[in-house]
Design a protein around this nucleic acid. Structure first.
Length: 834
RNA sequence: GGGCGGGUGGCGGAACUGGUAGACGCGCCAGACUUAGGAUCUGGUACCUCACGGUGUGAGGGUUCGAGUCCCUCCCCGCCCACCA
């Protein structure tokens, strides 16, 4: 095959893309008996256009997928669409286009754009989460989980827009007002569906230790998010109110003798019962104000501490003293018991609150060092460290840690409390008042289900599909949930009594869709189950999962939770869905700011592909820096990557005619040997770089190799020609994970009839990756004074002799005593002189 | 406030296990080919110094024959979480 002089990426790239597709080389499950690798990137929400973050994300997976294939694995590398969601629904409200229509258009565009980048996907497994054949299994999972008590209905707090008269998402609340109508947003308690993820809080926490190939920061973020605290609950009986007592949760029961009052969340069930008539007005006003504020405002970064006295007193379990009961904004109703004991001397928040309201301080802990802190009323801040208990009755003199254990035991014995473990993690509320999502397969029948708990739609009636709608009339973003407006959909018959019933009008959070999609790719057409458990045994867990670190605590926790559920249901063999997680950094604009419309600093992938070709885009994005690091876009560097590819092309072109048929069995000496050495070092280093995800250095090593080859000049002898031919072939081969189109084109020009990615990753010759002459640095007292070249296997004595023969070294050693001679094989020697 | 990253030439970055700091690329300088080049090729390029030599990885200290890398103290930048008792 001939080769043209100019590198013209556009034409050759689409040619190879179609050839790969025709040959079906990226379809998984074709390599009988080969070990398997499942490489996955987080599936995208199909907006109309890709951005550079997508390009980078998929590229990381793509390089690995191609590389593993060359390493002999049967690789599964699928792609699909997280197709439900808010943007399409918002667009529908604004423009009146049906979300399904818009989403379908977007998918076509997005997919076409992805294809221009040459990703090695198995498109035969494409999944669309908005397709009934997919979301029916969301419904199936929901019913299974409900049977197990893992999905339930509860009352919980939502953002209620006072203008739109509807529930809105957190992202739609800006500074306490609705971003659409700018009316105030308030908290409102409403019935919601939730998944009992907290059942597995401890397991999810424990299993983090097994995720050794996850980035430390993600593991830490999850640990923090689950937020286990070990402490005690202690009971405070309300003075003078029949059968009223409250429990506080504390991790610092050792400070309890310093407790001078207790504080409840305004929403605490006891608040209204214990408030004295004199305080009623103030308390009600405060509670009302809190309800108006919404959580954002109330507990935000610089919300001041505010509270009010209820008039009630509670009995301190240890001292029997009566301490006042307050309510305050900073106490959270949904954490611990919704009540805290206040120890202003030893807690920062309590200190600030006590100071603001003139409440008393009492010291209960002294520094273990014996340092005196002075009178507690004059403290500038709380003393929050552990220490030795003081003024703590029988516990005085004990150290904090011991005291905690002893006091917990005492409370348990007296029936005034118990040790307790609390988690920050909350159950996952997943119902949404949206149209564009999975319908929750529940109906309400007043006759069979007067409590309104919901009756499951029978499995054989799944899927409950979304009805056709008049977009303009239904998707208004206002009032009751869209589906509630479709009377012939929402009105149905009760599966139990066949009488009239209403369907649940809420839909599922789109995070449900992304909990298990990776398993759907295994058998995307399965219609008896979400997926075939047999295939799951073959392919799970996912070997490599690539996505943004912003998913640390939501998606990746839901995903792990769901994996456990799938195992319980006998569908999947594994607890943990993913072996190795890679989180990629952000691609910023050239100005260092996040690419966005606002700054006008976005660079569209399509622009780069059109101008330079996909391979340049690929090489640049990989070369720009390590995958987990952010980088700023640089047009100049793109140009540099393009230049590099042109140079590869030029080298191949230049020697094409003379070397493409050159065969030589050896020996290789002189220049031919140099060429081969460069080639084999390149194979070794690129492979090692890819293994450790250092794609930028992989590219750099190929550049370096090319520099070396070029400086060696045109081949003359047959041996040299054969060496150049090998060099070109190997360059194409090791470059194919990075720039696959260029690689295949050059390889074909050199006579290849295969695809480079279907080759085995080349083995390097170990004899060729070490030079036979080594340059040693010669140091005197740790400073480099000279270099010497010696044979590879030179002994310490030989290197020392060579070093001492250097003028500079001789001069530096004159009149000095060599106290020590350090020899580091193949690197340096150091004369330590005095 | 907490957690996690990160501070290395003019810039992006390299140095994987303590061993010649600055690979590779961009930019810049000089030259070649050119009517011209923002095309391509060749050479140079950490800083100070004419040179000998010296100085350099955010600052300061330490360990070591030897520190970008390990230890201690501190400063700055970015991201995430944030009144969780």
């Amino acid at each position: 095959m001939s080769m043209q002089e100019r590198y013209e990426p556009q034409a050759l790239e689409s040619k190879w893309q179609s050839r790969w597709e025709e040959a079906g080389i990226f379809q998984a499950g074709q390599r009988e008996g080969a070990p398997r690798k499942y490489v996955l990137e987080m599936l995208p929400y199909p907006s109309g256009k890709m951005h550079m973050g997508h390009v980078r994300n998929y590229l990381i997976g793509d390089v690995l997928a191609r590389y593993y294939r060359m390493r002999g694995f049967d690789v599964l590398h699928p792609m699909g669409w997280d197709a439900f969601g808010l943007p399409a629904e918002n667009a529908a409200i604004k423009e009146g286009v049906h979300p399904a229509v818009r989403t379908a258009e977007n998918i076509i565009q997005f997919k076409a754009e992805m294809k221009t980048l040459g990703y090695a996907y198995d498109w035969t497994r494409e999944v669309n989460t908005s397709d009934p054949s997919y979301y029916r299994w969301n419904q199936w999972f929901f019913l299974k989980m409900r049977e197990r008590g893992l999905a339930y209905r509860r009352t919980s707090r939502v953002n209620w827009c006072t203008g739109c008269l509807t529930v809105i998402a957190n992202e739609q609340v800006k500074d306490g007002v609705c971003e659409r109508c700018e009316k105030p947003v308030v908290d409102r308690d409403m019935p919601q569906w939730a998944f009992r993820i907290t059942r597995d809080s401890q397991a999810l926490l424990d299993n983090l230790d097994t995720l050794v190939q996850w980035p430390e920061r993600i593991v830490k973020a999850q640990r923090e998010w689950i937020g286990r605290s070990d402490g005690v609950e202690a009971e405070f009986v309300i003075d003078g109110v029949e059968n009223a007592s409250l429990r506080v949760f504390t991790t610092r029961v050792d400070t309890i003798y310093g407790c001078t009052y207790v504080v409840l969340a305004p929403e605490h069930a006891l608040t209204s019962r214990i408030t004295t008539p004199g305080q009623q007005e103030a308390v009600e006003a405060f509670v009302a104000k809190m309800a108006r504020q919404g959580m954002e405002q109330r507990t935000g970064p610089d919300a001041p501490k505010e509270g009010v006295f209820t008039g009630a007193y509670a009995v301190h379990p240890f001292t029997g003293e009566k301490v006042p009961v307050w309510i305050a904004n900073f106490v959270l109703a949904d954490y611990g018991t919704g009540a805290v004991m206040s120890v202003p001397a030893h807690d920062d928040r309590d200190f600030a609150f006590a100071r603001a309201y003139g409440l008393p301080l009492r010291q209960a802990i002294a520094p273990a060092s014996g340092d005196e802190l002075g009178p507690v009323d004059q403290w500038e801040e709380a003393y929050t460290d552990d220490g030795v208990l003081v003024d703590s009755g029988p516990y005085s003199g004990r150290i904090s840690e011991r005291a905690r254990a002893d006091m917990g035991e005492w409370l348990t014995e007296k029936g005034l409390g118990n040790t307790a473990i609390t988690y920050r993690q909350k159950d996952w509320g997943f119902s949404r008042q949206r149209y564009w999502g999975t319908p929750i397969p529940i109906v309400y029948c007043e006759k069979c289900d007067p409590q309104g708990e919901g009756i499951a739609v029978p499995y054989d009636q799944l899927p409950v599909t979304l009805p056709e709608i008049d977009v303009q009339a239904v998707l208004t973003g206002k009032g009751e949930p869209p589906l509630a407006k479709i009377s012939d959909w929402v009105n149905t018959t009760c599966p139990k009594c066949q009488g009239p019933a209403r369907r649940e009008a809420e839909t599922m959070d789109t995070f449900v869709d992304s909990t298990w999609y990776y398993a759907r790719y295994l058998t995307p057409n399965e219609d008896q189950a979400p997926f075939d458990p047999e295939a799951a045994r073959a392919w799970l867990p996912v070997d490599v999962y690539v996505g943004g670190p912003e998913h640390a605590t939501m998606h990746l926790l839901y995903f792990r939770f769901w994996s456990r559920v799938m195992k319980e249901l006998g569908l999947s063999p594994v607890d943990e869905p993913v072996e190795r997680l890679i989180t990629q950094g952000i691609v910023n604009g050239p100005d260092g700011r996040k690419m966005s419309k606002r700054w006008g600093n976005s660079v569209a992938p399509a622009t780069i592909v059109n101008r330079y070709g996909a391979d340049t885009a690929r090489a640049y994005v990989l070369f720009a820096g390590p995958p987990d690091r952010d980088f700023d876009w640089s047009d100049d560097q793109v140009e540099g990557s393009y230049r590099f590819l042109k140079r590869v092309w030029a080298y191949a072109y230049q020697h094409h005619a003379a070397t493409r048929d050159a065969v030589h069995d050896g020996p290789f000496e002189g220049k031919a040997l140099e060429i081969r050495r460069a080639t084999h070092k390149c194979i070794k280093r690129v492979g090692e770089s890819i293994e450790r995800l250092s794609f930028n250095t992989a590219v750099a090593f190929v550049m370096e190799t090319l520099n070396t080859l070029q400086s060696l000049g045109a081949p003359e002898s047959l041996a040299e020609k054969a060496a150049v031919r090998e060099a070109v072939q190997m360059l194409c081969t090791v470059l194919t994970p990075i720039v696959p189109h260029l690689s295949d084109e050059i390889a074909a020009a050199y006579g290849a009839e295969d695809f480079t990615v279907t080759r085995d990753w080349p083995a390097f010759d170990p004899a060729l990756v070490v030079d036979d002459v080594i340059t040693y640095a010669v140091q005197v007292n740790g400073k480099v004074r000279a270099e010497v070249k010696v044979a590879l296997d030179a002994t310490a004595e030989q290197v020392r002799a060579a070093a001492e023969a250097e003028d500079k070294i001789r001069a530096a050693l004159t009149d000095k005593t060599v106290r020590k001679f350090v020899f580091v094989p193949r690197r340096l020697v150091n004369f330590v002189v005095g």
